[in-house]
Amino acid sequence: MTDGNIKSMADILAAHPLFAGLDKEITDLLGGCASNAHFSAGSYLFKAEGAADVFYLLRAGDVALELSMPGRGKLIVDTVQPGHVVGASWILPPYRWRFDARAVGDVRATGIDAACLRKKCDDDPSTGYQVLKRFLPVVAGRLQSTRLRLLDLYAPPSEVGRAL
């Protein structure tokens, strides 16, 4: 990757809501792990159980997170919109995806090499801490959304708490 390329990737990262406002030094550093990615509608960014070696900051197009259910086909459990991030399993071992990620429409994204980023975070814990602080709200937001859906808010009163 050339310097020019690293610079422009750093700018792209700095413009993404996930990393907006981070010190330039950090986005420059992260730029070295980033590259452009494009997925056509229906293709997969990654599949469950695969190695979590690249995650994506979405710039355009939605991504559906799916799970295969025997007898019920593929179920969509979440949709990730532009401005958000696809993939958090790269942060902790065993670095394996838990869901399939499918491009709903044409997707443009910035792919981040997870091993490269992990190394930079390990080498400089203060950078690592800044990056983690950006990811924690993503994970917490998904947890909150999942908890709200566990409440099955729109179920008829007779079915509320059916699982209890």
Binding site: D62, A64, G73, K74, I76, T79, Q81, L148, R149
Partner: peptide, 19 residues
Amino acid sequence: ITVDLADQDWSGQVGVVTD
């Protein structure tokens, strides 16, 4: 429009309104 759960025929959002 967002729904709590869907199959692949759904091309809209899955998630909560607050998202």
